[in-house]
């Protein structure tokens, strides 16, 4: 379990993320941030709130709606040795700039035989649950994790958001930092209780590749990430009343992936439920099941996966609720595997 130091100071996920960025920018002149509406607005999802005041427009750069150009410019500046952070406002917009992300940012290190490296961070907002429909509600976790060459991190709370951001900026490779809108603690999009946590004032890193066991249990392993960590924990609380103890694992980073923590847990529980807010097929949930099958097939008694059932995200509330795994769905899946 993650050791969280008691500090008495609680932050929202956005404040924690911003604190890490500000710290790194103070320490290192070469860190700067580019994105749409990141300066005066402070990021549509508060990802750069108040940074303009301290660092000015030269380092907190509003850029034209030209994602290919500015994300590609981040690649170039990173290869020149700087430490740019580029924000893709919604991950759904990757379509207009994917070449710079996956053919340049992600591959230049390998294609150059390690002669160049790309120490940049691509921050992006993910997730649905507020009826923003097909072009503004995806997570696309699996898409980014699938393509080799980028590290992919998905914080689920403020403590991790800060530690993962410090680690991301200091990393010598490109890191995609996917923050869930629902967890940020934005005034106009109320977050659940969980993501606001105690956060130390000082800098700290969370190493990539360490999943966190958020709740211990013996009956079933629930592997999840992002918003659904909180839904899984809520489901687990309800199940405990009925004597079912679910272990909840928060992946935290997809690349690198902590196979060991997941496999060890399934060896103990024998039952696996994967909860993902990305599309079901050819993605994250299948990957988790495959890894468990490869390493602990004999221990695996039962599997369920919950994910977006291969439909684009619909707009109307009853439609979106039907396709985005809810707390009750998770509870039901755990009951099914423990039957």
């Amino acid at each position: 379990m993650t050791q969280q130091v008691a500090t008495g100071r609680e932050l929202t996920m956005s404040r924690a993320m911003v604190e890490a960025i500000a710290h790194e920018m103070r320490e290192n002149e070469e860190v700067f941030y580019m994105g749409e509406d990141v300066a005066d607005y402070g990021g549509i999802f508060d990802s750069t709130q108040d940074l303009l005041e301290e660092f000015g427009h030269d380092r907190i750069m509003d850029v034209p709606i030209s994602e290919t150009a500015y994300i590609g410019a981040a690649v170039g500046a990173a290869q020149a040795g700087m430490r740019p952070i580029a924000e893709l406002m919604f991950v759904d917009f990757f379509g207009v700039c994917m070449d710079q992300i996956y053919n340049q940012m992600a591959k230049n290190t390998y294609m150059s035989g390690g002669a160049v490296n790309v120490p940049m961070v691509l921050t992006t907002a993910v997730g649905g649950g507020y009826n923003d429909a097909g072009q503004h509600s995806q997570t696309l976790y699996g898409t980014f994790a699938h393509l080799p060459g980028m590290k992919v991190v998905v914080p689920s709370n403020a403590y991790d958001a800060k530690g993962l951001m410090h680690a991301a900026i200091r990393d010598d490779d490109p890191v995609v930092y996917m923050f869930h809108k629902r967890l940020m603690g934005i005034g106009w999009m109320p977050a659940p209780e969980g993501p606001k946590t105690e956060v130390p004032e000082e800098a700290y890193t969370i190493p990539f590749g360490d999943a966190a066991v958020r709740r211990e249990g013996t009956d079933a392993t629930v592997v999840t990430l992002g918003l659904h960590v909180h839904r899984a924990l809520e489901a687990a609380e309800g199940l405990a009343d009925d004597g079912i103890e679910a272990e909840v694992i928060d992946l935290r980073t997809l690349v690198p992936f902590d196979t060991e923590t997941v496999v060890e847990s399934v060896k103990k529980t024998g039952r696996l439920v994967v909860v993902d807010e990305d599309y079901r097929s050819f993605g994250l949930s299948g990957e988790v099941v495959a890894r468990v099958a490869e390493h602990a097939l004999d221990d695996l008694e039962s599997v369920q996966r919950l994910a977006i059932p291969d439909v684009p995200i619909p707009y109307a509330r009853p439609l979106e609720d039907a396709i985005n795994p809810q707390t009750a769905d998770i509870a039901e899946a755990v009951r099914t595997v423990t039957k």
């Binding site: 429909a133 097909g134 072009q135 503004h136 707009y315 109307a316 439609l319």
Partner: peptide, 16 residues
């Protein structure tokens, strides 16, 4: 309003 008889059966919404 996200209704079934909407132009897109409630799947698209105001931007689509």
């Amino acid at each position: 309003f996200g209704r079934r008889t909407g132009l897109c059966k409630g799947k698209g919404g105001h931007m689509h």
